[in-house]
Design a binder for these strands. Sequence first.
DNA 1: CATTGTATTGTAAGTACTTACATATATTTT
DNA 2: AAAATATATGTAAGTACTTACAATACAATG
Lengths: 333, 333
Amino acid sequence: MNIYDVSKKAGVSIATVSRVLNGSPNVSDRTRNLVLKVMDELGYTPNVFARGLGLGTIQTIGIMCSDSSDPYLAHAIYYLEQGLRGYGYDSILCCTGNSLENKQKYLELLRSKKVDAIILAGSKFIEPKLRDNDYITEAAQEIPIMLVNGFLEGNNICCTLCDDRSATHEAAGKLIASGCRSILYLYTSRSYSGMGKLHGYQDALGGCGLPVRKDLIYQCPKDVLAARDLLLKLHTSGLFFDAVMTSDDTLAVGAVKYAHATRRSIPDDLSIIGYNNSSYAVCTDPELTSIDSRIEALCATTINTLMIVFNGGNAPSRTTIAADLIKRATTKF
Amino acid sequence: MNIYDVSKKAGVSIATVSRVLNGSPNVSDRTRNLVLKVMDELGYTPNVFARGLGLGTIQTIGIMCSDSSDPYLAHAIYYLEQGLRGYGYDSILCCTGNSLENKQKYLELLRSKKVDAIILAGSKFIEPKLRDNDYITEAAQEIPIMLVNGFLEGNNICCTLCDDRSATHEAAGKLIASGCRSILYLYTSRSYSGMGKLHGYQDALGGCGLPVRKDLIYQCPKDVLAARDLLLKLHTSGLFFDAVMTSDDTLAVGAVKYAHATRRSIPDDLSIIGYNNSSYAVCTDPELTSIDSRIEALCATTINTLMIVFNGGNAPSRTTIAADLIKRATTKF
DNA sequence: CATTGTATTGTAAGTACTTACATATATTTT
DNA sequence: AAAATATATGTAAGTACTTACAATACAATG
């Protein structure tokens, strides 16, 4: 069952069938309808490989991320997949487990699969050492590369970012206004967005004339119990803090558990602000105040930008979206 | 850059190059090494479309699920993607949003993309009305279909299941042994696995000579606050229960929040058992006792079975895996 | 040494599409 | 009505592989 069968039954040439297939305007309505009818009758589906061979491209986008089971990335993948499908694109997924070797291997693999573009989801995608990202910059010479919540400069690379810095700046400011003076900051990674959040926190302190204390800033694995235990340890060591801000809700949940364990009352005695406004935020008692990084909007914007690229328009190399502070019960404001 | 360039430079025919590409044994070692060296020097990558055209197949598996952002499915996708990649297969993802129309559309789409097999992840994939699944049974005539945690009988369909029924049977039994007499059961959907869990709960009651009370069994959306509010409503209406079992940790978290709201103490006054042993399980205080549905093992088994199918072996049409009861702090046992 | 068999390689015909260019038909202009 | 133009369709040459079958080379056997 191929294009010849259709052309034969419709009494036209294969070129005409192909034109109908590709929505060419150079086909009369009468012929188009006829061909369409025959295709339907025959239950004909064009062969993707032959199509890809001819066109050199296929309606497929590669999505790479470190770990699709991470809630934040899982949502990103969901919104990307859905959005792309709306434009008729399929998604092929690659999880790198955050190893540079895998990142390089899979990017190469996606290119050899002739995907039309590659979306890199998550700020952890970008290596701290800039030259370690050369393979991305190089790949971008031949295929559009989109970063969701990650930043890398380069030709043919478009980034969509959340204004994390302003968000934590604002949130920390409100914490200070509500009386907090010793705000502990917990972050998971030194990624672009991770550092942005941290800088916003520091901005707020500076803006209010408070010192940026190194003994209030800690890195912690993205794990509820790890965060709880770290806080417990700091508590025991005598460190005082009246608020905890985190780069991820997971850590904030850990902070709530720390407060429970030490019988500190939230938010009177301890304020907590999470990040990502994930489903964890409503799991705790009291429920978490959290910064919504608007992953859905981030994905939608990324796809919009990609479509501009595909249509040859000049797409912005960098789009920034404002975050949303979602007030719940772990803060006084 | 194609197979001709390689053949020319290596001084062999394209057939020989192709044989090297496909690991044919009918090539002398000397020739193979030569061709491999030339490929490497030229940086040659075979064109997937031409390859697919010739072979009629491509190293790609379609994965369908209702919603990749659901934690359970997100993990399934992760393990499937990783496992398949280990065998050299790519994954293309389709989220159906649980609409029958989408399921049919995407299954057709995956078939037209000539994927080598389709994995249906999640029990919600199967429609309650059996004839609504005919499109799957039909598709299975032409392409292997694997169900992860879902059940459908049919030729060329292989199911990997978790023994949910035994798991809830055992768990409910322990609850009864620890003194509970009015165990509330909350479930999210009437899927195959959903019903299995419910039946296990009923088995345990029956086995202990307790009545199965309709007023203790409720359906609830998969949402923390919805579960909490439902329990609050039941509580207010005067219903008594001394334990809550749920088909998903999300609902169990809601139960913990209900207990907090009504100042009932866990587990003395109220026992709670969740399902899936997800990351939610350690978010609450006290932490959730939960049944681990062993999604990783489920995915690994599915892939093993698929490889048997690919190799022409006779794969089991149904494999069952035992669940694991993870004891934490919301139960007395 | 001729014959048979086996291992290796090459030729050529698929595989199912796209599209530049040529041609035929229809429409408009003069 | 002829010429010019626009529209519609067809022909044929890509696109980059696989593989059945043919051909060759080379070793083993009688």
